[in-house]
Simulated scan of single mutants.
Amino acid sequence: MTEQIAKTELLRRMQDGYEQFTALLATLSEEQLTTPHVNGKWSIKDNIAHLSAWQKRVIAVLAAIHNKETTLPNPTPGLSEDEINELYYQANKERSLSDIQNEFATVYQQIKGAVELLSEEELNMPLPQWKDQPVWPNIAGNTFEHYQEHTQIIQNWLASQQV
Results as ranks from 00 to 15, higher is better:
residue 149 E to I: 07
residue 63 A to T: 14
residue 76 T to R: 10
residue 12 R to Q: 15
residue 93 K to Y: 10
residue 103 E to Y: 09
residue 77 P to A: 07
residue 84 I to L: 11
residue 163 V to Y: 11
residue 132 D to T: 07
residue 107 V to E: 10
residue 76 T to Q: 13
residue 127 L to R: 03
residue 122 E to M: 00
residue 7 K to N: 02
residue 116 E to I: 04
residue 24 L to R: 01
residue 103 E to T: 12
residue 15 Q to W: 05
residue 130 W to H: 12
residue 109 Q to E: 14
residue 28 L to Y: 02
residue 32 Q to A: 07
residue 110 Q to R: 11
residue 44 I to P: 03
residue 118 L to A: 00
residue 63 A to M: 12
residue 47 N to K: 09
residue 88 Y to I: 11
residue 102 N to H: 10
residue 17 G to L: 04
residue 37 H to L: 11
residue 121 E to I: 04
residue 105 A to Q: 14
residue 130 W to T: 12
residue 60 A to T: 08
residue 65 I to W: 00
residue 131 K to E: 14
residue 63 A to Y: 11
residue 133 Q to H: 11
residue 124 N to W: 02
residue 52 S to A: 08
residue 159 A to G: 10
residue 37 H to F: 13
residue 84 I to E: 11
residue 41 K to V: 11
residue 47 N to V: 14
residue 161 Q to C: 07
residue 148 Q to G: 09
residue 36 P to T: 00
residue 2 T to L: 12
residue 23 A to W: 01
residue 152 Q to Y: 08
residue 145 E to T: 13
residue 59 I to V: 09
residue 27 T to F: 01
residue 134 P to A: 04
residue 13 R to L: 15
residue 155 Q to W: 03
residue 129 Q to G: 10
residue 78 G to Y: 01
residue 16 D to R: 13
residue 46 D to S: 05
residue 80 S to N: 06
residue 72 L to K: 03
residue 76 T to A: 13
residue 141 G to K: 04
residue 116 E to P: 02
residue 131 K to W: 09
residue 2 T to Y: 14
residue 25 L to D: 05
residue 22 T to S: 10
residue 70 T to Y: 08
residue 89 Y to L: 10
residue 135 V to T: 05
residue 138 N to A: 14
residue 125 M to K: 11
residue 31 E to G: 10
residue 85 N to K: 04
residue 72 L to M: 07
residue 121 E to Q: 09
residue 34 T to K: 03
residue 52 S to Y: 00
residue 83 E to D: 13
residue 84 I to H: 07
